[in-house]
């Protein structure tokens, strides 16, 4: 069965080829989507700054909140996953992707009850982001604070 062994080794190479064929097109689509979300965020930000006379820093939280609400609604209506099929990381990397991972997990388990369903499963996927965010931020801040105190 020498030929079959050959096929076995060919397989991973082919798979790589299959994926590498698409990366240019995929990253272009992601670029468009990510760029659009950023531009939209910038527009809302400017609107909040001018119409509610907020400072730039104060307007960040309402701007992100607006994006989060929009992506939550899109997730609920079932459109967000359709967008993600086309735009890939374009809708995963922005903060809207994090909202989607929480909302979708919560929706999936709503039939299992408010506490043991929605409550217990909301962070099933997004929890990793929270944990690594907190741990890495803690470590980074501690190290920086330590360095700063030593320098002083």
């Amino acid at each position: 069965m020498k030929t079959i062994d050959k096929l076995k080794t060919e397989y991973p190479k082919e798979r790589k080829l299959l994926i590498s064929n698409q990366w240019l097109q995929k990253s272009f689509l992601a670029f468009i989507a990510g760029g659009f979300i950023s531009m939209f965020g910038q527009w809302i930000w400017n609107v909040y700054i001018t119409s509610f006379s907020l400072t730039e820093k104060e307007a960040i939280a309402p701007m992100l909140a607006t994006l989060i609400v929009i992506s939550g609604l899109l997730t609920g209506l079932g459109w967000y996953k359709k967008l993600s099929r086309i735009f890939g990381a374009g809708v995963i990397v922005p903060i809207t992707g994090f909202t989607n991972s929480l909302a979708s997990a919560a929706m999936e388990y709503r039939h299992e009850g408010l506490v043991s369903g929605i409550g217990a499963n909301m962070f099933r996927i997004g929890g990793a982001v929270l944990i690594y965010g907190v741990v890495s931020a803690y470590v980074v801040s501690m190290v920086r604070l330590l360095v700063e105190t030593i320098i002083q």
Partner: peptide
């Protein structure tokens, strides 16, 4: 913004990451 997510897309495709790992 486009470039940042493009980097994400490339990481996801070339390293075969899941969306949670990417985030």
């Amino acid at each position: 913004g486009g470039i940042v997510v493009m980097v994400g897309q490339l990481l996801m495709d070339l390293l075969q990451l899941s969306s949670a790992q990417l985030m």
